[in-house]
C-alpha cells in the first residue's frame, strides 16, 4: 500500500469535525493500512467497534467502582481504609487497560485522560510524580476525569462512526 494513499485515508478521517483534537493521524493511519479492502475496512472497523465495546464496559466498571467507593466512604470507619485503597487501585488498573487500547488507536484525548485516571488511582498527581494528599483528593479528581474521559470518548466515537458511515 502506497504511503500517499494512507495519508489520504488519514486525511479522510481528519477532515471530519472534531477529529484533529481527538485522533493522532499517524497512529490511526497505521491501523487503516492494515485493511485489506479500502472500501470495506473490515479489519479497522472491527477493531474500532471492539474498542467502543471495551470502552463502554470499562467506563461502566469505573462508575461501579466509584459508586461502591462513595458508598463505603459514606459509612467509612477507620478500619475500612484498606478496602478503599483497593478500589482506587482497581480504578487505576482500569485506566491503564483502556489507555493501552486507546493509545494503539491513536485516540489521544481518551488516552491522556486514562493515563490521568491511572495516576489518580495510585493517589499520584496527573503526571504521576507527586503524591496526592489523601483518598478524598484522588477520588474528587477521579470523578472529574472519568466524566471527562467519557465525554471525550463520546466525541471521538461520533467521529469514528461518521468515518465508517454509521451514523444511525
Amino acid at each position: 500500500m502506497a504511503r500517499t494513499d494512507s495519508v489520504k485515508e488519514a486525511e479522510g478521517i481528519m477532515a471530519i469535525p472534531g477529529a484533529t483534537d481527538n485522533i493522532d493521524s499517524a497512529t490511526f493511519e497505521q491501523i487503516l493500512e492494515m485493511d485489506d479492502d479500502e472500501e470495506e475496512r473490515e479489519f479497522s472497523k472491527s477493531i474500532v467497534y471492539d474498542f467502543f465495546g471495551q470502552a463502554e464496559s470499562t467506563f461502566q466498571k469505573m462508575n461501579k467502582e466509584l459508586c461502591i467507593y462513595t458508598h463505603t466512604q459514606r459509612e467509612a470507619t477507620a478500619d475500612t481504609h484498606h478496602s478503599e485503597n483497593k478500589d482506587l487501585k482497581t480504578l487505576s488498573e482500569l485506566g491503564h487497560f483502556l489507555k493501552g487500547s486507546s493509545a494503539t488507536l491513536g485516540l489521544t484525548k481518551v488516552k491522556d485522560s486514562c493515563e490521568k485516571i491511572q495516576h489518580y488511582g495510585q493517589k499520584k498527581d496527573e503526571t504521576g510524580t507527586k503524591d496526592l494528599a489523601d483518598d478524598d483528593e484522588a477520588l474528587g479528581k477521579l470523578k472529574v476525569t472519568i466524566k471527562e474521559a467519557q465525554e471525550e470518548f463520546v466525541t471521538v466515537e461520533k467521529v469514528l462512526r461518521k468515518f465508517y458511515h454509521d451514523e444511525g
Binding site: 491501523i31 492494515m34 487497560f97 493501552g100 487500547s101 494503539t104
Partner: peptide
C-alpha cells in the same frame, strides 16, 4: 498482551 484490542492489532501487524 492483556488488552484484546492491542492483541488483535499486534497480530495484524505481525501477520503483515
Amino acid at each position: 498482551e492483556d488488552n484484546p484490542i492491542n492483541q488483535k492489532i499486534m497480530q495484524k501487524i505481525l501477520a503483515s
